[in-house]
Computed example of a mutant assay.
Amino acid sequence: MKKAGIVGLPNSGKSTLFNALTNQNVPAEKYPFCTIEPNVGILVVEDERLTRLAQMEGSKDQIHPFFHIIDIAGLVKGASRGEGLGNQFLDHISKVDMIFHVVRCFKIDDVSHPMGSVDPARDIEIVEIELILKDLETVNKRIEKIAKQARTGEESARFELHFLERLKAHLESGKPARILSRNEQEQAILDSLFLLSEKPAIYVANVDEWGLGQGLDKIVEKMARERSSESITVNAQIESEARELSPEEARELLLAYGFDTNLKKRFLEHIKRALKLICFLTATKNEARSWLVPEGITAYEAAGLIHSDIQKGFIKAEVIPFEQILQFSSFKEAREAGAVKSHGKDYVIREGDVVHFLFHA
């Protein structure tokens, strides 16, 4: 299961956001380094399609899409040299697949800012520079190693060295690795380096009314675009408070602050785009499930995710898009009407496919 890490400067609202996303109650105190060991939670998002499918098929249980979220210790300037909890921060971030970079865009007098003032552009650069500096260490070590092979005339080593030198210059200009142009061969080199600034990043403007009035969320949005990334605006404190209310009261509160979309659903959509994921659906009498899987996954590979026996005995996949199954009362009725199509192992699963696997037991 892939993981997203919530990162940012201390007191940016990381733990408050983590609580809102995972329905947990980790400490979210008003002083730096409240989070030392990373908190781990699960973002579960209701898939309305699954609820409808489960009703149609009479499924006893439902398993909605879920994703692991890690609340990582706050970073400070100098983290790449071990300042603050820098070494722990960088180690934890190396183990996640993508980053939610929380940027403080709120002003609360009794919640101190480690830099003394609210400045989202500066804060974004502090975090990114530390990641880039750590990446430069990695690249320099690889250059040292590959240069020796390149001197012997090895063609692949010369190619890699040339790319590494270009990558180094890019990082030294203060730009994250993820926006460097690359071809397929260069992508393979990047993948082998496991660079921190190569990870997909979503920038989270954590606002209050003051921050919105100052247009701080627009600054975060602009910087995200410049980095070929997306941004999302939240009021983590209000979202966290809304958890204690009834669904109707929570909706009224969020609407009053201009947030009319489910927070968890918004984050899942960003995750799906950043990591190129889709959801397909399955349903039996026992269980209906929405599976979060990589784009381009084949029916054979999807069968293996459900159970190795299904993959081993794979016969075919019966598939109907969710929008089409709504025209029928059940999968069985859709099949009898000829609306369900049969596919072999190489069929590429699509977003919203309802799939039934036939296999030899």
Rank of each mutant, 00 (worst) to 15 (best):
A201I: 08
G344Y: 01
E248W: 01
K345T: 01
T233R: 07
A317R: 03
F100S: 01
N25P: 15
E128T: 11
G215R: 04
Q187W: 03
R273S: 13
A283T: 08
L255N: 08
I297P: 03
A317T: 04
R166G: 07
E241W: 00
V127T: 13
T298R: 04
A339G: 05
Y31K: 09
E186F: 02
G5A: 09
R81N: 12
V26P: 02
E318R: 02
E287V: 05
F328N: 01
A274H: 05
L180A: 05
L43D: 14
I320E: 01
I189E: 01
D309N: 01
I325Q: 14
G8M: 04
D309F: 01
I146M: 02
A250Y: 00
E137Q: 13
L167Y: 00
S329T: 15
K285D: 13
V40I: 12
P294F: 07
G116K: 06
H360L: 11
G5S: 06
D71I: 11
E128N: 15
T16I: 13
F159D: 14
G5P: 03
P114F: 13
T261K: 11
F331I: 01
A188V: 07
T152K: 08
P200I: 06
P120A: 02
S12K: 15
G74H: 01
I219W: 12
S308L: 04
A201S: 09
I129K: 10
L9I: 15
V355R: 00
A73Q: 03
Y257C: 10
Q214A: 07
E336I: 11
I278R: 02
A250Q: 06
K77F: 10
F66N: 14
R104I: 07
G344R: 01
G344A: 00
I143V: 03
L136E: 12
T35R: 15
G344D: 02
A361P: 13
K3G: 08
E125M: 11
V40E: 15
T16K: 04
W210E: 14
K145Q: 12
S117E: 14
T233A: 15
K222Y: 13
K2Q: 13
V319A: 04
D135R: 02
E37L: 10
C34K: 12
V103G: 06
F359T: 00
A288I: 00
K272H: 01
V204S: 03
V96A: 04
P247I: 08
L254T: 11
S329R: 13
L245S: 01
H343R: 07
D110I: 07
F331V: 05
K312R: 15
L212I: 10
G86M: 06
H307M: 03
R158V: 06
D109I: 14
E37Q: 13
L90N: 14
I93Q: 08
N25D: 09
F194R: 09
H170R: 02
